[in-house]
Amino acid sequence: MTETAFTPRVFSGIKPSGGLQLGNYLGAIKRFVGMQGEMETVYCVVDLHAITVWQDPAELASATREVAAGYLAAGLDPTKSILFNQSQVSAHAELGWIFNCVARVGWMNRMTQFKDKAGANAEKVSLGLYAYPSLMAADILLYHATHVPVGEDQKQHVELTRDIAAKFNHDYKQDFFPITEPVTEGPATRIMNLRDGTKKMSKSGESDMERINMTDKAEVIAKKFKKAKTDPEPLPETVEGLAGRPEARNLVDIYAALNDTTPEAVIAEYAGAGWGRFKPALADLAVAKLSPIADEMARLMDDPAEIDRVLADGSARAREIANPILQKTYDIVGLLRS
């Protein structure tokens, strides 16, 4: 096989279930916006992934618009990036089936997120929940994406994508799909729960005080950070001093990510400070950074036709890239079209 030079291109997506929270913003959307201009950027609302578990249809449509609003409110420019929802580009599902036939059952059995989500009810969950990593691989490789910004908990899925690409290329003796690189830089690629620093911040947590919703008003954001769980010790002199202090580490990481700096710089500024000084400073910073996004999301959600227009335009542009890659895949596999 001759080695192919692939156009540098970013792909990533967010699932529209529950509602956007700070982890989505710092771990994903903020990074997506920052990558605009560095290379081609394709961003998606992965609504087909959402239905691996039951979704109320009206709520799913609204949640899809909310994620799109979050992208736009955070600064994603739909003239610089492609923004669309997955179900409007049918090639995702078509390539997903081909990759179902490339991926091995043993690979799927190693996916830790399925085990976490299925729990003791693995025999009762949908086949889609079991197989969705191969659809995720299709999402990425349908655009010949060379880079995928992900959190640490999603890195295994990019590794599976690489395995599927490598097996397809080997089986068909074609250097057709790129071996995608995960991008995991940043101080807060995994945002933790404000009430338990050992658990990831989640849209489905029991208490609303556990998370910062991207639709929260300024006073709510401030209250949640001021009441966030901490420990009795002041901030240490070095970042190494945060070891074994998950709540402290989480708040320092959040501050660093919001302020476009590093945990080391935060510690240098607040070394020895008590929580009575640090948490109000974090609350003020969060309000300054997040409130404008919440306000713009509210404005956009009041104009769903504008969101739908952006998604329709993005879907058309996505199909221009995706459809030729799908058709070439069909040719390689030997699928006959009249």
Rank of each mutant, 00 (worst) to 15 (best):
A145S: 06
V266I: 13
L95W: 02
E306C: 07
T112V: 09
S90A: 15
P78A: 15
P182S: 15
T64Q: 07
P236V: 03
Q88N: 04
G314K: 04
A5W: 03
T79Y: 08
K227C: 05
A318T: 14
G18D: 10
R277C: 01
A145H: 02
A138W: 00
G70E: 05
A218L: 07
M35L: 15
A137M: 07
D302Q: 13
T112M: 09
I179C: 02
N213H: 08
M209C: 12
Y43L: 14
I51D: 04
A273M: 09
V266P: 01
E66W: 03
E237A: 14
D139C: 03
N85V: 10
Q36E: 14
A286T: 08
A61M: 08
D295A: 15
M39E: 15
M297H: 00
T146S: 10
G37P: 02
L135I: 05
I98Q: 09
W54Y: 15
W107I: 07
G34V: 14
N213Q: 14
D175L: 02
Y71H: 10
V239L: 07
V310T: 11
A316L: 08
A243M: 02
L335R: 15
T180W: 06
A93Y: 11
Y43C: 08
P133N: 04
D295F: 01
L48C: 07
D331N: 13
L235W: 02
P246N: 06
L127Q: 08
E40A: 04
R317Y: 07
Q327N: 15
R337N: 09
P57R: 11
N250H: 06
I307E: 08
V45F: 05
D331I: 02
V67R: 06
Y330G: 05
V89R: 06
Y25S: 08
A288Y: 00
F225Y: 09
P236W: 08
T261G: 01
M136S: 04
A188W: 00
I212W: 06
Y71M: 12
L242N: 10
L127W: 02
T198R: 11
N85C: 14
E185A: 12
Q174R: 13
I164P: 00
Q55P: 07
G23L: 01
T64R: 12
E233W: 00
E185F: 08
I321D: 03
V42S: 01
F168S: 03
W97N: 14
T180Y: 04
R277K: 14
S126E: 06
V252Q: 00
A294E: 06
M108R: 11
I321Q: 11
E269Y: 00
A271T: 03
G186Y: 11
V220Q: 03
V105T: 11
A256G: 10
E320S: 15
H49V: 13
H144K: 10
A166Q: 15
A73N: 09
A69Q: 03
R317I: 11
K155Y: 00
L141W: 03
D116H: 05
T262A: 10
G13C: 14
V266N: 01
Q36F: 07
P324M: 13
M136K: 01
A131G: 06
E38H: 12
A137W: 01
A281T: 08
Q154L: 03
A138N: 01
E152V: 13
E247A: 09
N169C: 09
N121C: 04
L141Y: 02
R299E: 12
Y132I: 02
F114T: 13
D260H: 09
K229A: 05
Q327K: 14
A316D: 06
R190V: 12
P16G: 14
A322G: 07
G205C: 10
H144N: 13
